[in-house]
Design a protein around this nucleic acid. Structure first.
Lengths: 211, 211, 211, 211
DNA sequence: AATGAATGAGGATTCATTCAT
DNA sequence: GATGAATGAATCCTCATTCAT
């Protein structure tokens, strides 16, 4: 039950959350250079100066957004690896985790793709470390599979990029796909949901890796 | 006369090429909003006003760049499908074509990723048509493979996205990978060249699709 | 009870003193336009709103500072004129008083110079009256000297400006002089203390005025 | 005869002059922090962006102004020392030169006083060198006078500061003096022109220094 | 055909000041 | 009495675009 009375600190925390949420959306939509502080402030329902008071300049705000999104992502991934399962299960798990990560952070794909396209200048070491933990996970799974005779030996980076790449593209390409579906509906290409896609990826990746 | 004497028309064409080349690099580096007309002019070795004189405003310039890059890409793809080969060969061909496309257009990945992250607002119908032709090709290959009992039935869009996704990520992530390699060299992850990666993809995709 | 227990009124007075001291320093350092309320609050160890609560807006704060510095100065000067001395002694006294005034108010030179450079908009009539009392003093001394046949007739304003001018410059130019000393130490120019300078001024002014 | 036709380069030079003139006035009036780029642009009759296009940011503009004013001053002083005169003449010359310098640069006093009050942060080495040349001149004159038995030995820096100090104060205090004159006209203090003052200074300084 | 000069419109950032508790 | 939260109004600065030659 919202009781209407908020302490000063609660209000402050809430304000910060509003700002970061708005900033995440706007940066995802428009990129760093295209984002407008005015728009972020408006969408957050705060005065423009508030952003500087609470967070700092555009750069600081962007970094904060990146850290929020990627920090949570990395933590979540690292937590979700269950030991003692057969490699196939672990791999399915990994795909599922990646998928649910993107569902939880709908703006991650946009931000990530842009970041990489920009040379990842903002993905400084802290964030790079976060990401490297994810890579460590898939690497471990594949190694385990190879040891147990379940998987062929492959480059884990490429496997990860295939999984992540198709998911990013899928999420990010929604508006383009609308056009394609219209243009291509007579060629046997039909809409698929994110869930459909995840199932398909799981299947294809397992087929590709299994001995 | 090849020797230094250029006709007016040749100079004009050359100027336009300089502008478009410079614009391609700058847009790839910085995105539409982050690109600076000043920088494009400087890199092209022309006066800023020249850009407006020859091509038009920033929007027009960007569209021109997109069309140059994607138009050539689409044309090249459509040309390279050889009939009468077995589906496996066609698929290998398709992967190779995609790969050589990216080698020929080193800025395409950056631009494409950003475009999609922005909601593909600039990929208007003309360009969408270009892309849809590519999709038609892979769709045809997969259909053929299914008909001939060589491939399992899959969603061609997902297959395409996997192939394209990993390639885009690979090209675009060069700077980030440098960090990762440093962080992860003890986890059995090692540098691979674009060629290595293409071979690996070919292998994995065929394994995933073959009955 | 002197020991740590302060009455509410004492705390209030102390707070005000902290604010005014901090404000004096900051205004002296940066001038009116360059001074930052934030910085004054921080240096005073109080909350920014406190300044408005206790004193008022930036303008009021500045006026208060000016009055504090100049008010005390004028009072002190007027008090220190001893009657019945020979004019030479009175003049020495006047120079000494000016000098000790500046030692007591290290920020007065900076504030005064800036105020004059700004057209003395803040030196409103109240403060102008303060200053005019000082001028009355030197004027009286010179008149007395002329009457007694000790001094030549001169413009008291110019004498005052010479004395005050060199002292202000001396105090204010400390940082620049450091550079000059380095550049000029081979031209026979060497560091002098404020005391040295005061003695020299006394000597020169007396030589200039004595019949 | 203005012929109305100006070459591009002439226009450019003129624009820069307008900007620097306006900036000099505004910085003199309001100091660095108080100066408004808008006001400078308006007073120069140019668009605000022009200032950034031609000169740079506020800091650069200020430095340019300082260099213009002080650079010319230093050069003029160094040129005007005539050799072979008796020391008294040289000293008179020096006072006259200082005076005419201030008549030529009516904003120099305001800017200089503020600069010193701010700790002379912008008077970087280049400008310090300019100023030190002036000091070298007066130093030489006094030395010469001492050698020829005409002057007592004094600290040239103090002599210089007395001369410069009273002149700066005189020029800068015009608005305040108006108040004083009103308040003090019954105490025998009357308006004097800059010329009057210069004559008086010359007299006093010579009396102070002559053996 | 080509370019240096110039600017309007907008965007990031700052800062004195007020408000609510 | 005291202070953290919040903001309106500048203020500096940038950049795509146009103009005049």
């Amino acid at each position: 039950m919202e009781n209407g009375k908020k302490s000063l600190k609660e209000k402050k925390v809430e304000t910060i959350r509003h700002i970061l949420d708005a900033a995440t959306e706007v940066f995802a939509d428009a990129g760093f250079a295209g984002a407008r502080i005015d728009k972020i402030a408006e969408r957050a329902g705060v005065n423009k100066a508030m952003i500087y008071y609470r967070i700092g300049d555009k750069e600081a705000l962007y970094t904060e957004v990146l850290h929020n999104v990627f920090g949570d992502a990395a933590e979540r991934i690292a937590r979700n690896i269950e030991q003692g399962q057969p490699p196939e299960e672990k791999l399915k798990n990994y795909v599922m985790n990646m998928a649910s990560l993107l569902e939880r952070h709908p703006y991650l794909p946009h931000i990530m793709m842009r970041e990489m396209a920009s040379g990842a200048h903002h993905l400084n070491e802290v964030i790079a470390t976060d990401l490297s933990r994810i890579l460590g996970v898939i690497s471990g799974i594949l190694d385990d599979g190879v040891k147990k005779g379940a998987f062929i030996r492959t480059d884990p980076l490429i496997v990860h990029m295939m999984v992540i790449g198709v998911m990013l593209l899928f999420r990010v390409s929604m508006p383009v796909r609308e056009i394609f579906y219209t243009l291509l509906h007579d060629k046997g290409i039909k809409k698929s949901s994110f869930k459909d896609m995840v199932g398909e990826i799981e299947k294809l990746v397992l087929r590709a890796l299994k001995v």
